[in-house]
Amino acid sequence: MFKRLMMVALLVIAPLSAATAADQTNPYKLMDEAAQKTFDRLKNEQPQIRANPDYLRTIVDQELLPYVQVKYAGALVLGQYYKSATPAQREAYFAAFREYLKQAYGQALAMYHGQTYQIAPEQPLGDKTIVPIRVTIIDPNGRPPVRLDFQWRKNSQTGNWQAYDMIAEGVSMITTKQNEWGTLLRTKGIDGLTAQLKSISQQKITLEEKK
């Protein structure tokens, strides 16, 4: 169930391209415009997507990853294993993690069937560096609404905000991946996880038929 919630949630996290980005210092504006741009692209490019579902990787690479804190999220997933990894191991892992996100997020976007969304009203940021933004996803086919909290983090150097995690039903996506990959990290280390991520990233994206 959580895996499905995570995939549905990713439908609204794909941010804007650099040329049309919203105010990078306001995570609420980023979330709002990102959702609108993403849904528009999914709707307008269905012919290309249906002809070649792996085209979704391109959308992810162009529109999402430049505005997601990939390395920060990847380091959180590694936890204690990050500090013990060599620079070469980290570089290989982050490259594999990025390719994994292209496949995983692309597969999530393949679930698009006309969903709509509501974003919580903007709250004062103050001096906060981590801000959760509640998004409610509404399914046109009558499924119950899904309420999610996207975690946005302020870059201490640039002042810009980027998304790095999502919490559904009190469970963090980062925590879920830590639990899912924990045994592999304990037995085969970061190299074993890197190899698995490379394998997963090679899987073809498949479209979910409308139910």
Rank of each mutant, 00 (worst) to 15 (best):
residue 1 M to I: 05
residue 4 R to S: 08
residue 4 R to V: 13
residue 5 L to H: 01
residue 5 L to I: 06
residue 6 M to R: 01
residue 9 A to P: 02
residue 10 L to H: 02
residue 10 L to P: 01
residue 11 L to A: 03
residue 11 L to V: 06
residue 11 L to Q: 02
residue 12 V to M: 14
residue 12 V to N: 03
residue 13 I to H: 03
residue 13 I to P: 00
residue 14 A to Q: 10
residue 15 P to M: 07
residue 15 P to Q: 08
residue 16 L to W: 11
residue 18 A to I: 15
residue 18 A to R: 12
residue 18 A to F: 15
residue 20 T to I: 15
residue 21 A to W: 06
residue 21 A to T: 11
residue 22 A to R: 06
residue 22 A to Y: 07
residue 24 Q to Y: 09
residue 24 Q to N: 14
residue 25 T to Y: 15
residue 26 N to K: 07
residue 27 P to R: 01
residue 28 Y to D: 12
residue 30 L to E: 15
residue 31 M to G: 02
residue 32 D to E: 09
residue 32 D to L: 06
residue 33 E to G: 04
residue 33 E to Q: 12
residue 34 A to V: 11
residue 34 A to S: 12
residue 34 A to P: 03
residue 35 A to W: 13
residue 35 A to I: 15
residue 35 A to E: 04
residue 36 Q to I: 10
residue 36 Q to W: 12
residue 37 K to G: 11
residue 37 K to V: 11
residue 38 T to V: 14
residue 38 T to E: 04
residue 39 F to E: 00
residue 39 F to Y: 02
residue 39 F to Q: 00
residue 40 D to F: 05
residue 41 R to T: 06
residue 42 L to G: 03
residue 42 L to Y: 10
residue 42 L to C: 07
residue 42 L to H: 02
residue 43 K to F: 09
residue 44 N to E: 15
residue 44 N to D: 14
residue 45 E to H: 05
residue 45 E to K: 05
residue 46 Q to S: 06
residue 47 P to A: 12
residue 48 Q to H: 07
residue 48 Q to A: 11
residue 49 I to R: 04
residue 49 I to V: 14
residue 50 R to F: 13
residue 50 R to T: 09
residue 50 R to E: 07
residue 51 A to H: 14
residue 51 A to M: 14
residue 51 A to R: 12
residue 51 A to N: 13
residue 52 N to H: 12
residue 53 P to C: 06
residue 53 P to L: 04
residue 53 P to W: 03
residue 53 P to E: 13
residue 53 P to V: 07
residue 55 Y to I: 07
residue 55 Y to A: 13
residue 57 R to V: 15
residue 57 R to T: 12
residue 58 T to P: 10
residue 59 I to F: 03
residue 60 V to D: 02
residue 61 D to K: 02
residue 62 Q to N: 12
residue 62 Q to K: 12
residue 63 E to P: 00
residue 63 E to V: 01
residue 63 E to K: 03
residue 64 L to A: 01
residue 66 P to N: 10
residue 67 Y to L: 03
residue 67 Y to E: 07
residue 68 V to W: 00
residue 68 V to G: 02
residue 69 Q to N: 08
residue 69 Q to Y: 01
residue 69 Q to H: 09
residue 69 Q to E: 01
residue 70 V to N: 14
residue 71 K to G: 04
residue 71 K to F: 01
residue 72 Y to M: 01
residue 72 Y to L: 01
residue 73 A to R: 00
residue 73 A to E: 02
residue 74 G to Y: 01
residue 74 G to S: 06
residue 74 G to V: 00
residue 76 L to H: 01
residue 77 V to N: 14
residue 77 V to C: 07
residue 77 V to F: 09
residue 77 V to A: 08
residue 78 L to C: 09
residue 78 L to R: 02
residue 79 G to Y: 00
residue 79 G to W: 00
residue 80 Q to D: 00
residue 81 Y to T: 08
residue 81 Y to R: 07
residue 82 Y to S: 01
residue 82 Y to H: 05
residue 83 K to M: 05
residue 84 S to I: 11
residue 84 S to T: 11
residue 85 A to I: 04
residue 86 T to C: 08
residue 86 T to Y: 07
residue 86 T to W: 02
residue 86 T to P: 08
residue 86 T to Q: 10
residue 87 P to D: 11
residue 88 A to P: 11
residue 88 A to Y: 12
residue 88 A to E: 12
residue 88 A to W: 10
residue 89 Q to T: 05
residue 89 Q to D: 11
residue 90 R to N: 04
residue 90 R to M: 03
residue 91 E to P: 03
residue 91 E to S: 10
residue 92 A to Y: 06
residue 92 A to C: 13
residue 93 Y to G: 02
residue 94 F to R: 11
residue 94 F to S: 08
residue 96 A to I: 15
residue 98 R to E: 10
residue 98 R to T: 11
residue 99 E to G: 10
residue 99 E to V: 11
residue 99 E to L: 07
residue 101 L to T: 15
residue 101 L to P: 02
residue 102 K to Q: 11
residue 103 Q to M: 15
residue 103 Q to E: 10
residue 103 Q to K: 08
residue 103 Q to T: 14
residue 103 Q to I: 14
residue 104 A to F: 03
residue 104 A to E: 03
residue 106 G to Q: 02
residue 106 G to E: 02
residue 106 G to P: 14
residue 109 L to T: 13
residue 110 A to Y: 13
residue 111 M to D: 01
residue 112 Y to W: 03
residue 113 H to W: 15
residue 114 G to D: 09
residue 115 Q to F: 02
residue 116 T to P: 15
residue 117 Y to D: 04
residue 117 Y to K: 10
residue 117 Y to A: 03
residue 118 Q to H: 12
residue 119 I to V: 14
residue 121 P to H: 11
residue 124 P to C: 06
residue 124 P to M: 15
residue 124 P to R: 12
residue 124 P to W: 09
residue 126 G to I: 06
residue 126 G to A: 12
residue 127 D to V: 10
residue 130 I to D: 00
residue 131 V to W: 07
residue 131 V to A: 08
residue 131 V to C: 12
residue 132 P to K: 05
residue 132 P to S: 10
residue 132 P to E: 03
residue 133 I to V: 12
residue 134 R to K: 02
residue 136 T to Y: 14
residue 137 I to M: 06
residue 139 D to P: 14
residue 140 P to M: 13
residue 143 R to D: 01
residue 144 P to Q: 07
residue 144 P to L: 12
residue 144 P to E: 03
residue 145 P to F: 06
residue 145 P to S: 09
residue 146 V to I: 06
residue 148 L to D: 02
residue 148 L to N: 02
residue 148 L to I: 15
residue 149 D to C: 02
residue 150 F to Q: 03
residue 150 F to G: 08
residue 151 Q to V: 04
residue 151 Q to H: 08
residue 152 W to Q: 01
residue 153 R to P: 00
residue 153 R to I: 00
residue 154 K to M: 11
residue 154 K to G: 05
residue 155 N to W: 00
residue 155 N to L: 01
residue 155 N to P: 01
residue 156 S to M: 03
residue 156 S to G: 05
residue 157 Q to M: 13
residue 157 Q to W: 04
residue 158 T to K: 07
residue 158 T to Q: 05
residue 158 T to S: 10
residue 159 G to T: 09
residue 161 W to D: 00
residue 162 Q to L: 05
residue 163 A to E: 01
residue 164 Y to R: 00
residue 165 D to T: 02
residue 165 D to P: 00
residue 168 A to C: 08
residue 169 E to Y: 00
residue 169 E to K: 02
residue 170 G to R: 01
residue 171 V to M: 12
residue 171 V to F: 04
residue 172 S to T: 06
residue 173 M to P: 00
residue 173 M to Q: 02
residue 174 I to Q: 07
residue 175 T to A: 06
residue 175 T to F: 04
residue 176 T to M: 02
residue 176 T to E: 00
residue 178 Q to V: 02
residue 178 Q to N: 15
residue 178 Q to T: 07
residue 178 Q to G: 07
residue 179 N to E: 03
residue 179 N to K: 03
residue 179 N to W: 06
residue 181 W to K: 10
residue 181 W to C: 10
residue 181 W to R: 01
residue 183 T to A: 09
residue 184 L to W: 02
residue 185 L to F: 05
residue 186 R to I: 03
residue 186 R to M: 06
residue 186 R to E: 00
residue 187 T to A: 12
residue 187 T to N: 12
residue 188 K to H: 08
residue 191 D to T: 07
residue 191 D to F: 04
residue 192 G to H: 15
residue 192 G to M: 14
residue 195 A to M: 09
residue 197 L to G: 02
residue 198 K to M: 06
residue 198 K to L: 13
residue 199 S to N: 12
residue 199 S to H: 15
residue 199 S to F: 05
residue 200 I to Y: 06
residue 202 Q to L: 06
residue 203 Q to S: 09
residue 203 Q to N: 05
residue 204 K to C: 11
residue 204 K to Y: 06
residue 205 I to H: 05
residue 205 I to V: 13
residue 205 I to T: 14
residue 206 T to C: 09
residue 207 L to Q: 07
residue 208 E to W: 06
residue 208 E to P: 14
residue 208 E to T: 10
residue 208 E to F: 11
residue 209 E to T: 08
residue 211 K to F: 09
